[in-house]
Design a protein around this nucleic acid. Structure first.
Lengths: 375, 375
DNA sequence: CGGTTAACCGTTAACGTTTACGGTGGCGGC
DNA sequence: GCCGCCACCGTAAACGTTAACGGTTAACCG
C-alpha cells in the first residue's frame, strides 16, 4: 500500500532514522548487530528509497567532462547534442557539462583528458581514437574512482565503465547482405577502414566478410584497405585499387571517410558501375545518396549514442549500477527513399526547444576548447 | 550560481511563498497585479521548479491503463515491455500500470476502454484497431481531461493527446528503394495491407508507390490488396494475385500478416522467384528470413514505441507539456545478415532485470484481462 | 454601526532523506 | 573523582514545494 520509509524501519526496530540511514549506507558508527537487524528489516519490509527526498536533501552537483573530436562533420555535434538532450531532460539533478574538444585525431586527446582529471570531474565521456594511448589515462581515472564512458569506440582493457557504440558486427553483416542482394549474389567487393587495430573497424570487416561468405559464396571480398583517417591516403589507395581490380563491383566504406573514395571512383569514371555502401550521414554525402552514387549508408545514430552514454553514466553515478558494460545500438539504414525523413528529423531535432532552459556558458580552459553547459 | 526557489521570488517581492506558488500555478485567490509581478520576477530570476521537492511534497500516484491486443505475436508483448521498462526507470514517481488486453481486433476494445475510464485512471495508452469506433470514447476521455496516447496507429480527429508510431512514409519509401535495388530497377510489385482507411497503411502504400515512381520509373506497383486482418482472406487474395500476375517479381507486406502471403507464394511454387519484403519480426518469420524467402523485414521497434508512449504521457501528466503530437520512429531493417543480432537483443532485453523491483500483481477486472504492475 | 462575506495573503505542517551535532553510557588514566 | 575518549545512537534542522488553515483587510447589507 503505502511506501516504506526510513521511519517505518526505525519504528519497527525501536531505533532512530539516523541509525537506519547509517546502517543502510554503510556509514561508520553503528553496531554490527544493529546494522544486521536494520538490513534484515529493510529487506523484509521491501524498503525502497524515495529518490525525490534524496535528491532534495543532497543537492549534488555532477560535473561531467565530454571529450570528443571537434565537429569536423556533424557526427560529434550530434553526439554532443544527444548528451545535452539527455542532461536537459533530467528532472532534478544538476549536472554541469564540460565539453572539451580536440581538433584532430591523435592531437590533444591526452591533454584534454588530463585537463578533465585536473578539473575534478565526477565522470568522463570520451571518444578514444587511439585506445592504446588513452588506456593509461583511463586506468588512472578509474583508480581515482572517476568512471569513464567510451562512445563509438571502445578502449578494451582500460578499466572504463562501459562503452556505447553501434553493433559493429551487425553493421558489417547488414552491409554484406545488402551488397549481396544489390549485386545479385556475385561480384568482387572492397572494404575500406581506418585501422585494423581498432576493434570496431575490424569487427565491421569481419562481420561483412563472414556474412558474405556464408550467404553469397560466389562473391569475393578483398582484404581491407586501411586509410588511417588520412584523406589523401584513402583516395590514393582507392585509386590504386580501382586500377588493379577493374572488375570491382562494390565498395563498403566502414568509416565516415567516404568522400575520398567517391572522388576516386568519379575520377575513374566508374560512378554507375559500382555499388557503394557508406557509413554515417553528413551534408556532403547527401547529394551522393540522392544521385544514386551511394546506394545506401549505415547511420550510426550519433545522437542516440550520446544520449545512451550520458544516461548510463548518470545512472552509475547516482545509483551505483551499470546495466551493461557494452551497450550496442542497431544502426539505421538510409537510402534515397528515406533520406528526406532523416534529414527532416535531424533538423527538427536541432531546432527543438532545449527544454528546461539549459544555460550554456563558453569557456577556455587548458586542454583544448571547453564549453560549459549547465542544466 | 545557486538555484532560484519560491522563497527567493517571494523575498524579492516582499510576499510569501504561498502567494508565489498560487500565482505560478494559476490558483485562485491572488491579485492580478501581484500575479503579474510574480510571473515577471520568476522569469527574470530564471526560476525553475525543483522537481524533487515537488514530487516529495505531492506524492501523487499516477494510474495508467494500457489497452492493447493480447500477445498474439510478440509485437504487443514488446510494446508492453517497453512501457514497463520506462515506468520502472522512473526515478521518483509512483505509477500504477493497468494492462487491459483484448483477444481480437474489434473485440473488447471499447469495453476495456470503458473499464479504464471507470477505474478513474490518469491516462490511457491505447492501440486502436478501429479508430472510428474508439473515437467517441477517446473524445469522452479527453473531455474528462484524461489524456489518451495512441500507439502504432493513430486515431485522427479524436482529441487524443499524441500518437507514437513508425514513420510510415519512410517505411514505405525504404521498402520501395530496397525493392528497386534488389530487382535491378524493373519488375511488377504488389503491396498488401489491412485496410486503406487506416492512415498508417495507406501512408505506407503511398510512400512505397511515390518512391517507386520517382526512383524506379520502369517498375510497376499494383493497386493494394486489402486483407482486413483476416488470414484466409489474405491467403486467398494473394493466390488470385499470383494467378493473374504470373510476371510478378516482388511483394511488400505492410502489416504483420505475412505468413498467409508466404503460404500462398509457396503453394504457387514461386519461393525463389519473388522478392518479398515484410513488416515486423516474430518467431514464425525467422525461418522465412533465414531461408531467404523473405529478403528483408521492416522492424517497427515495438519496445521503443512503448517506451516513447509512456514517456510522453508521463511528461504530459507531470509537466503539462507534450513535445509533439506525432512522434515517429525510424524503422529498423532486418535481413539474414543481422537477424541474429536482433533476436539476441530481444531475448537479452527480456531477461534483463526489471529494475527497481517493480512489483506485479495480476488481477481480473471487467473489460478484459487486467494485470496491474506497480513501480 | 455591528456583522457578514469575499478577496487576498501569510503561516505552517507535512513529504522522506541526509547530516551535523549532541548526548548517552562505559572504559581507562592521572 | 575528574577528565577525556570511544562507540554508539538520538535529535533536529535543513532541502523546496504543496496545500490546508487562519488571519487580515475592505466592501456591502441590514
Amino acid at each position: 500500500m503505502k511506501n516504506i520509509t526510513l521511519f517505518d524501519i526505525a519504528e519497527a526496530l525501536g531505533v532512530s532514522t539516523g541509525t537506519v540511514h547509517r546502517a543502510l549506507h554503510d556509514h561508520p558508527g553503528v553496531n554490527a548487530m544493529t546494522k544486521a537487524r536494520v538490513l534484515q528489516m529493510a529487506k523484509s519490509l521491501g524498503y525502497r528509497p524515495n529518490l525525490a527526498a534524496r535528491f532534495l536533501s543532497t543537492k549534488r552537483h555532477l560535473k561531467i567532462s565530454v571529450n570528443t573530436l571537434k565537429g569536423t562533420t556533424s557526427f560529434w555535434d550530434e553526439v554532443r547534442a544527444g548528451i545535452s538532450d539527455e542532461a536537459a531532460s533530467l528532472l532534478m539533478e544538476n549536472v554541469d557539462l564540460e565539453f572539451r574538444t580536440y581538433p584532430q585525431l591523435d592531437e590533444g586527446e591526452e591533454e584534454s583528458f588530463q585537463a578533465a582529471l585536473q578539473a575534478k570531474v565526477d565522470g568522463i565521456i570520451v571518444f578514444s581514437s587511439r585506445p592504446e594511448k588513452l588506456r593509461t589515462w583511463i586506468r588512472r581515472a578509474s583508480r581515482s574512482r572517476i568512471p569513464v564512458m567510451c562512445v563509438t569506440t571502445d578502449a578494451p582493457g582500460s578499466g572504463r565503465l562501459a562503452v556505447v557504440s553501434i553493433d559493429t558486427l551487425a553493421s558489417g553483416a547488414l552491409a554484406a547482405d545488402l551488397m549481396g542482394r544489390f549485386l545479385g549474389g556475385s561480384g568482387k567487393i572492397a572494404v575500406t577502414l581506418s585501422d585494423l587495430r581498432i576493434t570496431e573497424h575490424s569487427e565491421k570487416y569481419s562481420g561483412f566478410e563472414k556474412t558474405m561468405n556464408a550467404l553469397y559464396p560466389k562473391m569475393r571480398v578483398l582484404p581491407p584497405l586501411e586509410d588511417h583517417d588520412i584523406e589523401p591516403v584513402a583516395q590514393e589507395k582507392c585509386r590504386k585499387l580501382l586500377d588493379s581490380h577493374p572488375d570491382l563491383t562494390g565498395i563498403y566504406v566502414t568509416t565516415e571517410a567516404s568522400l575520398p573514395v567517391l572522388r576516386a571512383v568519379r575520377d575513374a569514371g566508374l560512378e554507375n558501375q559500382l555499388t557503394i555502401i557508406t557509413t554515417d550521414l553528413f551534408s556532403d554525402l547527401v547529394p551522393q545518396i540522392r544521385s544514386g552514387a551511394v546506394a545506401a549508408t549505415i547511420y550510426q545514430r550519433p545522437r542516440t549514442q550520446g544520449r545512451m552514454a550520458f544516461r548510463v553514466l548518470r545512472e552509475f553515478l547516482t545509483e551505483g549500477e551499470c546495466p551493461s558494460y557494452q551497450i550496442t545500438l542497431a544502426p539505421h539504414l538510409v537510402m534515397r527513399g528515406n533520406l528526406d525523413f532523416f534529414l527532416e528529423r535531424q533538423s527538427s531535432e536541432n531546432n527543438g526547444n532545449r527544454r528546461r532552459g539549459a544555460r550554456v556558458v563558453a569557456n577556455n580552459l587548458p586542454g583544448g576548447d571547453v564549453a560549459v553547459a549547465r542544466s
